[in-house]
């Protein structure tokens, strides 16, 4: 079984500040994940603002290099790909960004984002063939080519623009699409359509998806498995049904309990976790990162950082509450721990 895209024990530290007041921010700490070639899946990556979700996406895309660890594409280190391999990587790993407004150049027609990849990767022999390819890609996600092509970005709605980005990503017949908060800036009614498009790409064209979001409900709707990040560490990972329906890490439990349910009879429970956590006091350099907010804190939590415990077949939790379970290595994520199918 070959692995398409893999992050192996990746750590990313950003340093900022001047010569004397150097400040280091650990954005990601020892994170591993792998996307297998067989059985295309949808993996949700959730976490709050600043948990390292976008850093992970940028590392996997090769936009930034990890401080420690490696990002591998088909077994080859991203840093050492040859020219041809790099081109293949750029075609086969596509991305959809959060903001459907910023990705377009307002002076170009929207066709530009579709014709450029066709030309760059020599997808078509002639202009008419290229045009056909683009129209196919648009129709596949339910857009009318005559209503979208030839227009400027400001003439289209946010939802349409984001769907063109989905079409652009699928145009290249990629193996993997990284979607970084693809629906957080579009309306609830259009959100559904875009998520449906993404699911179709996965099921019909066998494209694996990494769905990065802070919205647990949509992650639950489309993902097969899930990775929960907290301050740069994986706190819980595994099969989506297990993690959402029966969350084990106190942070995941808090996340699930905080979703506002659209039912006036089902009120939010009283908050058992401390409301106020200043950024500085929450970030501890020893022990579990969540200990400052955790209602189940034990003496050991403040001393040693917990490893990942494999609590059931398809799930691992970074929490000492489950210390009786067997410890698994971080880089086993996605290999031993993952969806059933």
């Amino acid at each position: 079984m070959t692995v398409l895209l893999e992050a192996r024990n990746v750590t990313k530290v950003f340093s900022s500040g001047g010569l004397f007041k150097r400040k280091e921010t650990v954005a990601l700490e020892n994170v591993s994940l792998s996307i297998k070639e067989s059985s295309p899946s949808i993996t949700g990556v959730v976490g709050e603002t600043g948990s390292g979700k976008t850093t992970l996406a940028r590392l996997l895309l090769g936009f930034i290099a990890p401080t420690e660890g490696k990002v591998l594409y088909k077994g080859g280190d991203l840093k050492r790909l040859s020219r041809d391999e790099r081109l293949e990587f750029q075609r086969e790993v596509q991305v959809i960004f959060q903001d459907p407004f910023e990705v377009y150049n307002p002076f170009y027609k929207v066709d530009h984002v579709l014709t450029t990849p066709v030309a760059k990767f020599h997808l078509a022999r002639s202009k008419t063939q290229g045009r056909k390819l683009i129209e196919h890609a648009l129709q596949a996600i339910g857009l009318q080519p005559e209503e979208t092509l030839g227009r400027y970005p400001h003439q289209l709605s946010g939802g349409q623009r984001q769907r063109i980005m989905v079409a652009r990503a699928s145009l290249l017949k990629p193996r993997i699409i990284l979607a970084d908060e693809p629906v957080s800036m579009v309306d609830a009614s259009l959100r559904a359509t875009i998520l449906e498009n993404l699911r179709k790409l996965n099921q019909k064209f066998g494209i694996s998806l990494l769905y990065i979001t802070h919205d647990l409900t949509t992650a639950y709707q489309i993902s097969d498995n899930i990775i929960v990040l907290y301050q740069g560490s994986v706190v819980e990972v595994g099969d989506i049904e297990l993690v959402i329906k029966n969350p084990q890490h106190p942070y995941t439990q808090l996340l699930v309990a905080s979703i506002p349910v659209p039912d006036p009879d089902q009120r939010w429970g009283q908050d058992s976790t401390p409301v106020l956590v200043s950024k500085t006091s929450a970030k501890v350099n020893w022990g579990c990162k969540f200990v400052g907010r955790c209602p189940f804190g034990m003496p050991i939590c403040g001393k040693d950082p917990p490893p990942l415990f494999q609590t059931d077949g398809y799930r691992a939790v970074r929490c000492y509450l489950y210390k009786d379970a067997s410890v698994i290595a971080g880089n086993a994520i996605g290999k031993d721990v993952g969806p059933k199918r």
Binding site: A192, T193, E196, T217, T218, Y220, Q221, K245, V256, P262
Partner: peptide, 16 residues
């Protein structure tokens, strides 16, 4: 509008 937001209860078709 009420049927729109995806819930944790049912998984399935997205309703827009």
């Amino acid at each position: 509008l009420i049927a729109c937001p995806p819930s944790l209860e049912e998984k399935g078709q997205f309703k827009g």
